[in-house]
């Protein structure tokens, strides 16, 4: 059996980047915090671009704890949505551009989220990566880590539970 010819690299990149852009740019709050995502294959890294309006303690100064929690939660939800939809995006079942406008596409909902503040967030860019510990039909468990200058020195970590979108009733 002959292996199908692999797609040209630019097609693969274009499709994946368009899907990720639609997923992220469609959410006003992600734009408000100025969070973007770096993609290597299916691996995502959240980037929180520092701005003075993110400061929570003007005397240190340090990033607001709420912003840190929001950054970790956004990274968890986007990573979970991305992994959940990746196969359908690859197969063309989900139109990359229509991810946010298509009402039939649903996103995971946060049930609970717990943040450990390990050190204060310095006034500079921060990075975060989410690890899906388990993703079942209904619930998912996700762990997230955030760091700044040194990946080995996390400034926050979190874990949370999410309700996965339920598939629409089967037409058959």
């Amino acid at each position: 059996m002959a292996r199908p010819r692999p797609e040209p690299v630019q097609m693969v990149k274009q499709r994946r980047d368009a899907a990720l852009r639609a997923l992220v740019d469609g959410v006003p709050y992600i734009r408000f915090l100025n969070i973007s995502f770096d993609r290597r294959g299916d691996e995502l890294t959240g980037v929180l671009h520092f701005d003075d309006k993110l400061i929570g303690n003007p005397f240190l100064p340090a990033i607001h704890g709420g912003v840190t929690a929001a950054f970790l939660e956004v990274t968890a939800v986007i990573t979970l949505s991305w992994e959940h939809m990746f196969a359908s995006i690859e197969s063309g079942e989900i139109d990359a551009e229509a991810i946010v406008t298509d009402k039939s596409i649903r996103f995971p909902k946060t049930i609970d989220f717990t943040v450990d503040y390990l050190r204060s967030g310095l006034p500079r860019d921060a990075y975060a990566r989410a690890f899906i510990s388990r993703s079942g039909r209904r619930y998912a468990s996700v762990r997230v880590e955030a760091w700044q200058d040194n990946h080995a020195k996390l400034f926050a970590q979190a874990s949370g539970h999410f309700l996965m979108p339920q598939p629409p009733m089967d037409k058959n």
């Binding site: 469609g26 959410v27 006003p28 709050y29 992600i30 734009r31 408000f32 915090l33 929570g56 607001h64 704890g65 709420g66 912003v67 929690a69 929001a70 950054f71 939660e73 956004v74 946010v100 406008t101 009402k103 996103f107 946060t110 989220f113 943040v115």
Partner: peptide, 24 residues
């Protein structure tokens, strides 16, 4: 505030903004 919307299809505020007000 529309800048804080987490789901553009419903207009519901993002959980992150709720975290911030609770933390503060």
């Amino acid at each position: 505030n529309e800048d804080l919307i987490g789901d553009p299809r419903t207009g519901v505020i993002h959980g992150g903004a709720i975290s911030t007000i609770l933390d503060t």
